[in-house]
């Protein structure tokens, strides 16, 4: 039997380029490791880990069943409320931004500017937004809602505009040829066509916002984050454990429900 030889094509320029890429990437990673100072594990680490595991075995059940404002159920509900309101606010504001970033609505030049604006919003960390809004409306859930509402525009408007750009333009042209004005075209041709996708993306963002809302409390913007960070800082591991368990379970349940709805939508 003859051996079958497959000859690989080699392009010298490409190979050199690839080597350069690899060198750059590994150089960067090497440089990164140089910057992370490993001070060794604290002497208390072993006992901390023990206490932490102990906390997970005996979670603070009294806190989990405390129905007052200081209890866990209230904090979780507040987190969900922040996520829902924040997502709603951003979904509404995202529509004009999405239209501004869609090439088939406003033309190529304007859409480039719109896309850049959306990218800039997406890049701005939500915790810093939360800090800014805390100084505007004071600490509490409203600051968290505003932070999520603004930050989520970055992702939602991008996904919305992609949905709008890939829609069937025939309906829009038909309405325009019948003399429909701008708003008629928008509300009768563009939005009805993309609305299932818009809803699906909004739900997806809601899942992400659930996770985000649980960290906003770290800076004082409401929700479960504040009691959690307090429990960790004071090393009340039983309480930290119960919060983490309930948080993970809640987020997973919400993920499942919203995933089912999304599957039905699109």
């Amino acid at each position: 039997m003859e051996k079958i030889l497959v000859k690989k094509e080699r392009n010298p320029l490409k190979t050199t380029l690839h080597t350069v890429y690899y060198l750059i990437v590994f150089g960067l990673i090497f440089w990164g490791f140089g910057g992370i100072e490993y001070k060794g594990i604290m002497q208390t680490a072993a006992s901390s880990i023990n206490a932490l595991l102990d906390g997970f075995i005996n979670p603070d059940l009294a806190y989990a069943t405390n129905g007052t404002v200081d209890g866990l159920p209230y904090a979780i509900l507040e987190t969900i409320a922040i996520a829902i309101s924040g997502t709603f606010v951003s979904a509404i504001i995202s529509i004009p931004f999405a239209l501004l970033a869609s090439q088939n609505i406003v033309g190529q030049r304007v859409s480039k500017v719109g896309k850049l604006i959306v990218t800039m919003i997406r890049t701005f960390p939500e915790l810093i937004l939360a800090l800014i809004f805390i100084s505007v409306v004071g600490p509490g859930a409203p600051a968290g809602i505003l932070a999520l509402g603004i930050h989520s525009i970055g992702m939602l408007a991008k996904l919305f505009s992609e949905a709008i750009e890939s829609m069937d333009m025939g309906v829009k042209e038909a309405l325009e040829s019948c003399g429909g004005n701008y708003f008629e075209v928008l509300f009768r041709a563009v939005l009805p066509q993309v609305s299932p996708e818009l809803l699906s993306y909004t739900l997806y963002r809601f899942e992400i916002n659930m996770r985000a809302a649980s960290t906003l409390g770290l800076v004082g913007a409401g929700g479960i984050g504040a009691p959690l960070i307090f429990a960790i800082r004071t090393r009340s591991w039983e309480r930290a454990a119960v919060i983490i368990i309930v948080l993970v379970v809640t987020v997973t349940i919400i993920d499942q429900i919203s995933g089912r709805i999304r599957k039905k939508l699109v």
């Binding site: 932490l52 960290t215 960790i232 987020v251």
Partner: peptide, 15 residues
């Protein structure tokens, strides 16, 4: 599901 911030504060407590 556990946010990176929460993980970080746990690790700060340990490391």
């Amino acid at each position: 599901t556990i946010p990176a911030m929460v993980l970080a504060s746990l690790f700060v407590a340990v490391f």
